[in-house]
């Protein structure tokens, strides 16, 4: 414990680095993946290519990507940008398929009806198809968030500071407490991110909770009403 108190400043600063290095790829990954996923869903010719390419991208080991990126895009070897770009690519890799699948699963009846109401193609995507994909996108983002928080630690191996530094330092000094602090810190960050995403979901997708919690039978004004199956 005294080690933690003595090094509190360093741990906090590493935690902030860790959060920063995770948030940027999570947000960027989402913003990039949704349009790509939408394109994949709309144009069946490119769907296979985009979905497969993003799948393969995820198979590239993170350490290899961190080390390769400087020679590909010309960044400095110690630049945190390498980690941010690499993790953004992973987030995109996970979310492209999720987005394409989520959009493809939107009820055809609802799409037809939105079309008949007079939504333009763009309006339908933004106001109907994406919101209805919300619950699936949210589930995908929860995976992305946790996986990104955990992958940030690997960046410590190439000298980009995060809570991962505590693993390396603790391992080299044979000091388990430091490793433990690193692990707990990482898990707490992941849990907080996950919780924030769930909260955002409750706020942005109130309808999905009602459908789920009420099941098939609900009470409306004292009359039992059977929901249409």
């Amino acid at each position: 414990m005294s080690w933690l108190l003595a090094n509190l400043d360093m741990v906090l600063s590493l935690t902030l680095d860790h959060i920063w290095l995770s948030v940027v790829p999570i947000v960027l990954g989402f913003l990039l993946a949704v349009p790509i996923g939408a394109i994949a869903n709309r144009y069946h010719l490119v769907r296979g290519t985009l979905v497969t390419a993003s799948g393969i991208l995820y198979a590239v080991p993170s350490l290899a990507l961190f080390v390769l990126l400087p020679s590909i895009i010309g960044t400095q070897i110690l630049d945190p940008l390498n980690v941010i770009i690499a993790l953004t690519l992973y987030a995109v890799a996970l979310m492209v398929r999720t987005t394409a699948d989520a959009l493809a699963d939107v009820e055809p009846d609802v799409i037809q009806s939105a079309k008949a109401m007079g939504y333009s193609t763009w309006g339908r995507l933004v106001r109907v198809e994406l919101p209805l994909s919300g619950p699936v996108l949210l589930a995908g983002m929860r995976v992305v968030a946790v996986s990104t928080v955990s992958l940030v630690s690997v960046g410590a191996l190439i000298g980009v500071n995060s809570l991962g530094y505590l693993f390396i330092d603790g391992f080299q000094r044979n000091f388990p407490l430091e490793i433990l602090v690193g692990i707990i810190g990482t898990v707490v960050i992941a849990l907080v991110f996950d919780g924030l995403l769930v909260l955002m979901g409750r706020f942005l997708l109130p309808w999905s909770r009602i459908t789920r919690t009420n099941g098939r039978l609900i009470v409306v004004q004292d009359d039992p009403v059977v929901i249409n199956p």
Partner: peptide, 12 residues
Amino acid sequence: YVMQNSGLLPHR
């Protein structure tokens, strides 16, 4: 336009 299964937007 009115369709079978109402075609209502579930999120509205």
